[in-house]
């Protein structure tokens, strides 16, 4: 089981019983001087008593520390191999949302790969309600080469997660501050009732990776396309990617894509 500390904080979303149990485990390890931490691995008996533990630093410094500890627990308990008691499945899934909402998935990765915080890309899910996504469309009937600029709030919602993997303490708190942004759409084709418009835009955003006052900036040029049915004025596809982007002098790639309901 994995769990965010934010969820079991006083204002967190976990149940009172869950918060109490997480606190009990923490206190037990602390009182017995078994090692504790915010980012930590605890191994417990079925009754919730300590069997082992390891800091994330010790667990990730090589490929053997954690494996050796787990093998030691298995040997101590005499546990028999078996199937997972919970079926594995995707852990990054679209949030529940109204049927007429537009669900977007963002994936972002820095140019540096395979190091700490660079083992896999970062992801976010962004949901636009109908009133919001209607703002992506032109006011009237679309015409070839017609251009319109997105409103500030809508553009911000699309761009605010355009940064690579960073140290996140409270993922629910927005630490981005958009200083400059521009996002426009231009109709490039109208075929069989489907309008395709091209995104072009720029972004300059301050984003502190841990503390609010860090002066780290995203500078990005973005592009992409939007396809919508001219008759029903419903969105079929949205793709928005960085053409060129840097954060703290590191290049990164970010991509936002609409996820159809059937694929969620």
């Amino acid at each position: 089981m994995y769990g965010s500390n934010e969820d079991v904080a006083a204002s967190g979303s976990a149940t009172a019983a869950e918060k109490a149990e997480r606190q009990r485990i923490y206190r037990t390890y602390l009182d017995r001087k078994l090692g504790v931490g915010d980012v930590h691995i605890y191994i417990l008996t079925p009754n919730g008593e300590p069997l082992g533990g390891m800091s994330v630093g010790e667990a990730t410094v090589n490929d053997t520390n954690l494996l050796n500890m787990l093998n030691g627990v298995v040997k101590k308990l005499g546990s028999a191999p078996g199937e997972p008691v919970v079926s594995p499945g995707p852990q990054s899934v679209a949030p529940d949302s109204p049927a007429d909402s537009l669900v977007l998935h963002l994936s972002a990765r820095g140019a540096t790969r395979g190091t700490n915080y660079r083992m896999f890309p970062a992801e976010n899910w962004i949901v636009l309600d109908k009133q919001e996504w209607t703002g992506l469309l032109p006011a009237g009937e679309a015409k070839m080469s017609e251009t319109w600029t997105l409103g500030k709030d809508l553009a911000s919602k699309l761009l605010i997660k355009f940064y690579p993997q960073t140290v996140e303490i409270t993922a629910g708190v927005e630490r981005g501050r958009i200083d400059r942004q521009n996002l426009k759409l231009t109709v490039t084709s109208i075929r069989d009732g489907v309008v395709r418009a091209r995104f072009d835009g720029t972004l300059r955003m301050k984003h502190g990776s841990v503390a609010q006052n860090e002066d780290f900036f995203v500078d990005a040029v973005v592009t992409g396309f939007l396809e919508f049915d001219s008759g029903t004025r419903t969105i079929q596809r949205l793709r928005l990617v960085t053409r060129k982007a840097t954060y703290r002098d590191e290049e990164f790639l970010a991509a936002l894509r609409s996820v159809p309901r059937s694929a969620r």
Binding site: M1, N5, I41, P46, L51, I169
Partner: peptide, 8 residues
């Protein structure tokens, strides 16, 4: 046994 990973 239980494997518990806490994180931010």
């Amino acid at each position: 046994p239980v494997f518990l990973f806490t994180h931010d």
